[in-house]
Amino acid sequence: MTVPLTAYLVVAALLFAIGVYTVVAQRSAVMVLMGVEVLLNAIGLNVVAFWRFTAPTDYSAQVLAILVVTVGAIEMAIGLALVLLLYRQRRTVEVDAYTDLNG
């Protein structure tokens, strides 16, 4: 392993920071969902990197990564269905237009 663990973690941290920026700064709900995908990617990268470097004989980490991907898929489907519904009702996907949903 010529590439150290820290390098992978740095890449994951950068991806996480970009994901946070996207989630906060983007105006369209679809772009916010894309940012969430980048966050999930960063998490998966962290999990797999730690698996490879600290416990390569225990494959539980890969199971966890698979579950993260699964939950991400569900989140995506529900999120896009919600966006579609809101778009149909209000003709806009901008999250700023949904502030009246704030109960």
């Binding site: 740095v10 941290a13 950068l14 920071a17 946070v20 906060v24 700064a25 983007q26 369209s28």
Partner: peptide
């Protein structure tokens, strides 16, 4: 495509990245 809080978001993301790294 971005909200007016974009500079704030940039600072937040930069802070998150710096803290994590």
């Amino acid at each position: 495509m971005v909200t007016p809080v974009r500079p704030l978001a940039a600072w937040l993301a930069a802070a998150a990245g710096v803290v994590l790294v």
